[in-house]
Amino acid sequence: MNAPIPAVAGVSDREVEAFLVREARLLDDRKFEEWMALFVPEGYYWAPARIGQASPRDEVSLIFDDREFMQNRIRRLRHPKVYGQQPASRAVRQVSNVVIDERDAATGEIEVRSVFFMFEHRPMLPAPLQRVFAGEYRHRLRPDGESFRMVWKKALLANCDSSFEPIFLYF
Rank of each mutant, 00 (worst) to 15 (best):
F19P: 09
E17K: 13
P6T: 00
P80F: 12
S114M: 03
G145K: 11
M150A: 09
D104M: 04
R140P: 05
V99Y: 04
D29Q: 14
F116I: 02
R76W: 04
L125S: 11
I51H: 07
R67D: 00
G108T: 06
A7K: 04
R78I: 03
V132M: 11
R90F: 00
Q71Y: 04
R113Q: 07
V99I: 15
P41Y: 03
Y170L: 12
K81Q: 14
Y45S: 09
L157I: 13
R122H: 12
V60Y: 10
R93S: 03
K154N: 09
M70A: 09
T107M: 00
G10N: 10
V115L: 05
E146N: 14
S89Y: 05
E136K: 11
A105H: 01
V98N: 02
F39A: 04
L77V: 03
V16W: 09
S163E: 13
V95N: 01
F116S: 04
E165I: 09
I74K: 13
S12F: 13
S61V: 13
E17R: 15
F133A: 12
P123H: 09
A24F: 08
F69V: 11
N97Q: 10
E102S: 00
R75Y: 11
E146C: 05
Q53D: 08
V92N: 14
F168P: 00
D29R: 04
M1A: 12
P41K: 04
S163M: 14
E15N: 14
P48I: 12
R90W: 01
Y44Q: 12
F168Q: 01
Q94E: 02
V132I: 14
